[in-house]
């Protein structure tokens, strides 16, 4: 927390507003003036606007610590997590818009939950256990420590939707599973507890709505707040799926 003796900046925060629940409402940019405070994040700024200026403003925050993935939004045109964005790292004029692609709930709030659930159902993003029931009293099956760590690295996805908002294909193909979906398949492929084979995964992602839809623009990789290795993982997965396709 940096102490400042200089005067606080005056911020102009412009929000793309639209509430589809209100008949006749139209999208518009609304600007709020706000005095910056030390350590101010967009979480603090937006709450202050809602409490003091505009009780109707919609946005989503849950953990406010960068771990839950609720607050993905377009910050000066780039997808990111609002809660951990410090205003001091931005200019005095800030433009906020909802993530594209996802269903708009209102203002900055989008329905990422619905999208993610549909993706999970389609890609069956759970471990397909070789036996349905674990023997709960026995010592657990072993796993190499390094492998567990590698699985966790991919498991760190918070389903915030930034990769989808930053994806060229997702704008053109409504059913594209995106980096979030492909990363999950990469994660389960690594996991020896999952009984699925590459042939099974090919059924899920071996088409243009899956891994072959990716145009390698890699906006996903650039904007991922968790710095997941999306570039290498998608490329690797594509090679594996090509191998199945060529069989």
């Amino acid at each position: 927390m940096k102490d400042t003796t200089t005067e606080n900046r005056q911020l102009k925060i412009s929000v793309l507003r639209y509430n589809p629940q209100v008949p006749g409402d139209r999208p518009r940019l609304q600007t709020y003036d706000l005095e910056e405070a030390a350590g101010m994040t967009l979480f603090i700024a937006l709450n202050e606007i809602r409490e003091k200026q505009d009780p109707s403003l919609q946005f989503d925050f849950v953990c406010r610590a960068g771990i839950c993935g609720s607050c993905g939004m377009m910050i000066n045109g780039r997808p990111g997590l609002a809660c951990r964005t410090l205003t001091m790292n931005l200019g005095p004029e800030i433009t906020l818009a909802p993530l594209p692609v996802f269903e708009l709930i209102g203002d900055l709030s989008v329905n990422t939950g619905k999208w993610m659930r549909a993706m999970s159902e389609r890609l069956e993003t759970w471990v397909h256990m070789k036996q349905q029931e674990v023997d709960l009293t026995r010592i657990e099956e072993r796993m190499e420590p390094q492998l567990a760590e590698e699985i966790y690295l991919l498991d760190r996805c918070i389903e915030c939707g930034c990769c989808i908002a930053g994806c060229g294909t997702a704008r053109m193909r409504e059913a594209f599973v995106g980096a979030v979906g492909l990363n999950k398949i990469a994660r389960f492929r690594l996991d020896p507890r999952d009984g699925r084979t590459d042939e099974d995964y090919y059924e899920l992602i071996g088409d243009d709505d899956g891994v072959f839809g990716c145009m390698s623009l890699l906006g996903c990789h650039d904007v991922c707040p968790k710095n997941l290795p999306l570039q290498t993982r998608i490329a690797f997965l594509r090679r594996k799926m090509v191998a199945v396709g060529l069989k």
Binding site: W126, V134, L136, E140, R142, A148, D155
Partner: peptide
Amino acid sequence: APKAVRELAGWGVPWSRVG
């Protein structure tokens, strides 16, 4: 508790492991 943690190991939680 040991049963729960072992169940979750089966369900895919990437628990950190002993080396």
